[in-house]
Amino acid sequence: MAAYIVRTAFFKIITLVIISIISFLIIHLAPGQPSQIDPLNPRFRKEDIARYRAAFDLDKPLWKQYYLFYKKLGSGELKSFKDNQPVLGKIWRRFLNSLPLFIVGTILTWCLAFPMGIPAALNPGRLYDRSTTFLSYFFISFPGFFLAYLLILGVARFLEVPVLGMRTFGQETAPLLYWLNDRIWHLVLPSLLGAIGGIAFLSRYVRVQMIEVLDSDFVRTAHSKGLDENTVNYVHALRNAALPFVTMFGLLLPALIGGSVIIENIFAWPGMGRMAFEAILARDYPIVISLNFFAAILVLIGTFISDILLVLVDPRIRL
């Protein structure tokens, strides 16, 4: 067990190093130098560029830039190109804003995918199975931003609740219940949109997994010793079908975080995804690199947790 965790952690660290290199180098895909942010600006004189290059270590060789970048990032000295604020603090504030979206999105995915997929697996080929299959593919294929606009239109017109942003302005002093209600209404649409692809994907996976397990010998044995349907399906079959899902937790995270770029932009949600977009538009490279790096770390933590959970629930791996 301990050996397994150490080995997994070792591979995660190697992965992390490669990720840090790729995140750093991707900026250098751009032709020219990162210091040429605004070459047409007449106020950007030669000596300004030199000062700028020195301030952000851009005059050093590539490998030294890489080392200094992550050293400064770790010690919290790294500054944004745009407003000279420390990168860590900026990202942390935006991350806290995004966190409710990620958490609610994950909860929605896992709470809706299983009830959707299991009945389909119990009666494969029937109307319910075929309609959920079609619906899943329908929502996987729906361009997220188009769906977002349709939902905003529908919700704003028929339910008359606020949808854009994180909260309604001027509600800070409202009674707790109103404040909470306001926050929840703002949260529903973006987190549902973020989760919708995951729900569709996961429910298909639940179905396939469940069908495979229902076909196996021990399920037939359970039936033949006279257990009732529900015990066989939900206690015997589901517990075995659910094993691979522990690893899915880590795999669904990247889509959730990557998808937040578009969704947070549409809903004016001041989170990580919106920050990434703003930073890319402003060519704010320290922020862009750190965001790519931190998003990958988030996913790595997710996969690490699911790797460990997998050992806890599936003793075969420990051997």
Binding site: T15, I19, I22, I26, I27, L253, P254, A255, I257, G258, G259, V261, I262, A276, F277, I280, V288, L291, N292, A295, A296, V299, L300, T303
Partner: peptide
Amino acid sequence: SFPTFFLILT
């Protein structure tokens, strides 16, 4: 581990 859309966008 990379959120692909982030990476592609960058």
